[in-house]
Amino acid sequence: MSYREKENIVNIFSGLLITAIFGWIVYQRHLEGRFDLTEDFSKWGVIFLIFIGVSIVVRIIIYIIFHIINAIATRGEDIPIEDERDKLIKLKAIRNSHYVFSGGFVLSIVALAFGMPVYWIFIVFIISGLLSEIIDNGSQIYYYRKGV
């Protein structure tokens, strides 16, 4: 398995892990009554901002751990340079992930039009954000294996 494929797998699992843990913590606080996510929409804004910050920090930590483990496993093999093929694969993967995220956005608007509560928009945003990241990294793995 190439370095890029390993990197994509780590990205998928770190995205799943961070979203699951953060979502669980927020949901527990909501159940405890610390805030009401069905009514207090400004809280959603705060939660999203905290999520972005936490996500960046945790990803950096996971990346450092990944690089250390990879360096040990491959006995210090150099990280491959990003060339034109990597860029093309990244572009195609980003296109796929944008389709998914846009689909989520449209879905949330449709749900709103059909009378679903407003907080559903935020939940669909989180889910489509996570799905788009999985599609992004999954597409990259696919293109690396099957060709582009």
């Binding site: 491959p80 340079i81 990003e82 060339d83 093929r85 060709g147 582009v148």
Partner: peptide, 17 residues
């Protein structure tokens, strides 16, 4: 100025440079 994986892909015919 490419990665080894790209050379592998070109050789296999999985990528047109």
């Amino acid at each position: 100025g490419a990665s080894r994986q790209t050379i592998v892909a070109i050789e296999k015919g999985n990528y047109s440079p």
